[in-house]
Amino acid sequence: MEEGEIAPIAGRILSPYTSAQSNLEAAYVSLRKRIAALEGTYSSEVLISLKADADASVNRTDTKPAGSDVWTIKWEENWPVILNAGKTVDYVGKNINDRDCAGNSGDSIGASFLYNKDLSRERNVALRLDRLNVTVVATNDTIISADVLPTRSTVYDISSHSTGIADLRYRQIDSRVDVINLGEERYTGTYDITRKVEMVLVYTNETNETDWLSCCVGGCSELDPCEIASWGEVEVFDCVCS
């Protein structure tokens, strides 16, 4: 807990200010903050709970069908991380910039309060990473595909009163590291904002039993199996729907 006055020192001509930064990282989970404030009254309280376990070994399995040059390599990592963090800030003064960001294996969410003369905010974040599965399909020469499949959840809960700029951002990515959800918001003025964002990605190792015949079975999926005249070699190997 931090509480006090940011005030000039007698006999010094520099404007009084305070700044602080912190980074917290565990596995693929991170929490960052930056604060810079000019003269004023400032109080902040931070409570962080972190539990990370990286003892388990990473399992790797390689498979290559006979006669094929395509490898499927899978990594399974069970290094769970649970990070819960609460933070409050109260400031009245000339100006404060207060930024924070939470990251969880590619997903990120944060808020920036800039040039605020009067700021009060409460933020709670819960980051959970259960496991990480990575699947790479490749030949000896090239990588055909790579899927990063973490099982994770990110909950970000904020309540604020701001008098300057309030920026809220979030980003969620998929297994190919492509952005699937993006939010950018800016509020300039006096605002009371409450917001809760929850991003969840659950990887389940399900095998589609028809995948190996996806060409034929997929293409004939709308047909009644009873009406399919035959499943001879032409239908199977030439992908023809009878």
Partner: peptide, 8 residues
């Protein structure tokens, strides 16, 4: 949200 000013 509630407030006054600009929003984007």
């Amino acid at each position: 949200l509630s407030g006054s000013g600009d929003a984007n």
